[in-house]
Design a protein around this nucleic acid. Structure first.
Lengths: 244, 244
DNA sequence: ACGCGAAGGCTTACACTGTAAGTCGGTATG
DNA sequence: CATACCGACTTACAGTGTAAGCCTTCGCGT
């Protein structure tokens, strides 16, 4: 047994890989390494080089550790990615403005700022679950109900709002420069007249993502308020459920 | 050179792979194979086994061809995936109802039906571009403008509508059974009281994705119409641009 | 003081991915 | 008839996630 191991080692050494002793031996007791450390490292890598660069080997390298060692702290890569998002979402600010509309608005804008440096999160959040994510949604639901929306309308409201409560809508231009370049490309095509209606609509409209996001959000919130204030009837009579 | 090749072949043959002559030789002139064929095959695979099963080798196998042969018709896998979506979108029905609201509504619902068997498309469409996709958007913009919305409001409208014009909102429950199972899991947690506000709001609300989609869509369309009819002023005075 | 069991690293190996580079047979064109 | 080229095939490679097993070191019960 033992001899076998030694043999293998010897073989490996002769196979050519020089400098076999990594400089990783740090101090004496090696690094403790925790799940959170891994997630922080992953976040850093994703911020710098994109989500595609988050790879077990890369993470190990970033932490001065072999890839497989990570599996003592996470069960698989999926958990890493999910964890990154959960960590981020758990740190979302949750400001309280006065009424429900102001609160939801404030939180969306705060989330927008919070997530801005982490473009990868946008792509992830769409299909994610996770406790902190659900807590966020729970808070929004609470606000809506406190604002006097019916259960049914609250349900609809969540659908309409979508991920906007996290501070973004799902357009093309996701923060990274790759997406940015593609938008430029499309704009050029528009100017060439391939999409006449878009070209017409774009005339004189000065584009500001932040402003546009706020417009859209306000339009939705106002729409919800109006739906609450009575004419919830007409569009809703087809619904099999009626509640207060 | 030539001898070298022969040598290599000899080596390979001795290496063990029996049955080297594939039965793929079809008829005599081999199959023509086109990009569209590849895309159709890819769509079929994705429909059956999910987008993750779409792999060059798998596609080749599906078409009775080696993986590398595909590269004579597409430049890389990215183009395959983009092509799948473009093909699907190019086949979207574009019904014309009377006014702009009815038309957009009808198209969204038609798209919903059209895309329903292709769950993978939902995930893709969010970050995609492509000519046919843009044409779809162009048509929506045209409808909005024809409906009397200002350029600025049209802009906002596109943000608010997002991918809803393709017949879906970006919730968790993407058609595939994997997502379905996760929703069940979350519902169980809700019932366990982890998310009290959601639990409260869910009482007595009977859930129907299609109905809910329509509610949300109508709420948005009505909101847009109201914004058009005048009070576009108050929420919009902050905008640097004013147009008719 | 000691032994030992587990924690947490490391190594190897494997199946699978996309794709670069080169080979080769047939068919259409000079 | 010769040739060029198209469209298939073959081989090879680097990079992915991760299963399985090995080795060292530390903390703790006896």
């Amino acid at each position: 047994m033992r001899t076998l191991a030694i043999q293998r080692k010897a073989v490996k050494r002769s196979t050519g890989t020089d400098a076999p002793r990594r400089a990783s031996r740090r101090g004496k007791g090696r690094a403790p390494l925790s799940k959170e450390q891994i997630l922080r490292a992953a976040t850093l890598v994703a911020d710098r080089d994109g989500l595609g660069a988050v790879t077990m080997r890369r993470l190990g390298q970033e932490l001065g550790v072999e890839a497989m060692s990570l599996y003592h702290h996470v069960t698989n890569k999926e958990e890493v990615v999910a964890g990154m998002l959960e960590l981020l979402v758990s740190e979302l600010p949750a400001p309280d403005a006065g009424d429900w509309k102001a609160t939801i608005r404030a939180r969306a804008l705060a989330a927008r700022e919070h997530l801005r440096p982490h473009a990868w999160a946008f792509r992830l959040i769409a299909n994610a679950e996770g406790v902190n994510l659900m807590k966020h949604h729970d808070a929004v639901v609470a606000s809506l109900r406190a604002g006097g929306l019916s259960r049914q309308l609250t349900h609809t409201a969540m659908h309409v709002l979508g991920n906007r409560t996290f501070g973004f809508s799902e357009d093309l231009f996701l923060g990274d420069d790759h997406g940015h370049r593609r938008v430029q490309e499309i704009l050029r095509e528009v100017r060439q007249g391939k999409y006449p209606a878009i070209a017409e609509a774009l005339q004189g409209v000065h584009h500001d993502d932040d402003l546009e996001f706020i417009f859209a959000l306000d339009l939705i919130l106002d729409g919800l308020e109006r739906a609450r204030d009575g004419e919830a009837r007409d569009a809703r009579t087809t619904s099999p459920v009626r509640d207060a």
